[in-house]
């Protein structure tokens, strides 16, 4: 198990390196941030001064080496636009995104698994067909449109919930969070719902197909023939087998939601990481974009590793050995 994890970590370092090259040079290739930062009335001397201060007068490969050198010392650079360290800027946005994603995924699991089980046990019944039809709609509607509709319905027409922004926050264990204030939760509902809807749909479909499939398996038939109560068959045998794909998908979704909830965060003006990424891309704020993608990659790698370890816990047949990776 230890060798397996070590091997995975080594692979991860390679992936991070590859990602850093790809992102660094693609952002470099888009354009020159100087023209976005310097006003047209600025003179050539002023322009040159900034170019030198940001190190943009160096050739691209040298800029990359400087960047990697600093990165190895834990410094991923300063934001061109904000003048503060990029990692600090990104991490200061992390709690806002995290609470959104945790809420959305909890909703996805708490609503998705029971509904999926229900639909999967009687796939031809009217309720099941209704649920499955709804999931198609929930999964295929574009995120920004759904967000606008939620705002229109719950904020503008009904006036129940605020349209955007994070609500009141309190500091818990040194982290500013809005999970523990009434105002904060009110602000969380719509963006979390918007993130949750496609994931609820995804989990329902996953669980429903899995259940239908499992119910025809030999071991379920055998259990039934033995006279095991249906409740126990579902709870003990079916559910446990279904959780494996659910954990995989939720793990992947967790990574991508934390890193790339850009649409929802933009629509709801949520001060999270995704909104920062979009702004930084618009401003060609290379240090932030590169640091962001590196952190996101790191997150994905860690989550995947965690998912693999969870597999082993859920399924005794899975063994984490070095050679199998």
């Amino acid at each position: 198990m230890a060798t397996y994890i070590l091997q995975r970590l080594l692979q991860s370092a390679g992936v991070m390196l590859a990602v850093s090259v790809a992102v660094f040079f693609s952002v470099y290739g888009i354009g020159d941030p100087i023209e976005l930062l310097v006003p047209p009335q600025a003179g050539a001397a002023e322009r040159l001064e900034l170019i030198q201060r940001l190190g943009l007068d160096q050739p691209a490969w040298q800029q990359y080496l400087t960047f990697m050198g600093n990165a190895l010392h834990g410094d991923l650079g300063r934001s061109f636009a904000h003048g503060v360290p990029a990692v600090g800027l990104i991490l200061s946005r992390l709690p806002a995104t995290m609470e959104l994603v945790l809420l959305a995924l909890s909703l996805a699991v708490l609503v998705g698994v029971p509904l999926g089980l229900f639909a999967g046990l009687d796939p031809h019944g009217k309720p099941a067909r209704l649920i499955l039809a709804c999931t198609v709609v929930g999964y295929s509607l574009p995120n920004f449109w759904k967000g606008m509709m939620l705002i229109l319905l719950f904020s503008v027409l009904l006036g129940w919930l605020p349209t955007a922004e994070r609500g009141e926050t309190v500091t818990v264990l040194g982290i500013r969070t809005s999970l523990f204030t009434a105002d904060g939760l009110r602000h969380l509902v719509l963006p979390a719902l918007n993130l949750a809807i496609p994931n609820v749909a995804l989990v329902i479909r996953l669980v429903a197909t899995g259940t239908t499939d499992l119910m025809t398996q030999e071991f379920v038939k055998y259990a039934r023939a033995k006279g095991v109560r249906p409740r126990r068959i579902v709870g003990r045998h079916v559910l446990r087998n279904i959780l494996i794909p659910v954990v995989t998908v939720v793990g992947i979704e967790f990574g991508s939601l934390v890193a790339f909830s850009t649409v929802t965060e933009t629509v709801f003006a949520w001060p999270g990481m995704g909104k920062l990424l979009i702004q930084s891309i618009y401003q060609l704020d290379r240090p932030v974009v590169v640091a962001y993608v590196m952190l996101a990659t790191f997150l994905f790698i860690s989550v995947n590793l965690l998912v693999d370890i969870l597999y082993a816990a859920l399924d005794p047949r899975v063994k984490l050995t070095g050679g199998a990776a």
Binding site: G147, M148, I151, L152, S155, V156, G159, P162, T163, A164, E165, T266, V267, F268, A269, K275, Q279
Partner: peptide, 17 residues
Amino acid sequence: LPVTSTGPRFAGLLAGD
């Protein structure tokens, strides 16, 4: 409050935020 998208900003006014 920075609300950079036009639609949500306008909706926020309509909703009284």
